[in-house]
């Protein structure tokens, strides 16, 4: 009656599903190997630590490296207190109700907004209406809004993982809610919060559309938060798109990929230490 026995359907299914998984991993491997293979040769001390010359045709990427470093730091300086505060409020200071549902819905929606919309908003609000011009500050604030949902979610998860008995002990010793949050809950949730921070830094480093319209693309070192900067992603985009220098584009891409790899490995390691300690 049956064309294929259940046993064979099972084998075929496992084959197909396994092939699909393998394909995904091979694509990942291909992207990394491709970029590193073409770009690793370009990376040297001079490439990393000298100024670009002739629009990036020659010379290094030093200012974009600094831009890529400063922009996430600025974004985090704003988003971290807001995100952690939100998570603390949601978990420690209120019951589930209409307000928490609205806050969660807002966070989820913010997380789904594409970066080009953040770019448009940052351009019209920070750059134009608040008259900041294209600068580090406008870019940092725009990115802060973009990473806020990530910080909120990871912090909330980390706080929820702190056993309730820890809080009860603290309360029974006469500590206030606030003291309990600061001295007991947050220190125990720290590894989870750090994970969120790392993820956010990764998003900032890889971001282009939201940055190019808010932080601009000036190719020199910024002197204040009101100077325009160019990040590595933006630099790479301009080099590749305008065909300025394939060699330097590959080099920049390789630096980008290595940074992302390092970030991810560190995050993974941190998470494992965290889980290892818990169980």
């Amino acid at each position: 009656m049956r064309l294929v026995s259940p046993k064979w359907t099972q084998r075929i299914a496992v084959g197909v599903l396994g092939a699909a998984t393998l394909a995904t991993l091979l694509i990942l491997l291909f992207i990394i190997v491709f970029v590193l293979e073409k770009g690793l040769r370009t990376i040297c001390w001079n490439f990393l630590f000298t100024d670009p010359q002739d629009m990036g045709r020659a010379g290094g990427i030093f200012p974009t490296l600094i831009g890529t470093l400063l922009l996430p730091l600025l974004a985090l300086a704003v988003a971290l207190p807001l995100g952690v505060g939100t998570a603390v409020y949601l978990t420690e200071y209120t019951r589930e109700g209409r307000l928490t549902r609205i806050i969660r819905f807002g966070t989820d929606c913010l997380a789904g907004i594409p970066s080009i919309i953040f770019g448009l908003f940052g351009f019209i609000f920070f750059v134009t209406i608040l008259k900041m011009g294209w600068c580090l500050l406008a870019g940092g604030l725009t990115l802060a809004i973009m990473i806020l949902p990530t910080i909120i979610r990871t912090t909330e998860e980390a706080i929820r993982a702190v056993p309730y008995s820890y809080r009860e002990v603290s309360f029974s010793l006469g500590a206030t809610r606030w003291a309990t949050v600061v001295k007991v809950v947050l220190p125990n949730a720290l590894p989870g919060i750090v994970t969120g921070v790392m993820l956010s830094i990764g998003r900032c480093i890889g971001e282009t559309a939201a940055v190019i319209f808010t932080a601009g693309q000036a190719l020199h070192l910024p002197h204040s938060v009101f100077d325009s900067v160019r990040t590595m992603s933006v630099h790479f985009y301009i080099l590749a798109r305008e065909g300025i220098s394939a060699k330097n584009a590959y080099g920049t891409a390789a630096v980008l990929i290595i940074s992302i790899l390092l970030l991810n490995v560190t995050t993974y390691w941190l998470m494992h230490r965290f889980i290892g300690r818990r169980t």
Partner: peptide, 17 residues
């Protein structure tokens, strides 16, 4: 984590590939 790495690769790099 490897698949999460795929999410971390900048979109400009995907475009370039």
């Amino acid at each position: 984590p490897a698949i999460e790495l795929l999410a971390g690769i900048p979109s400009v790099v995907y475009g370039f590939i």
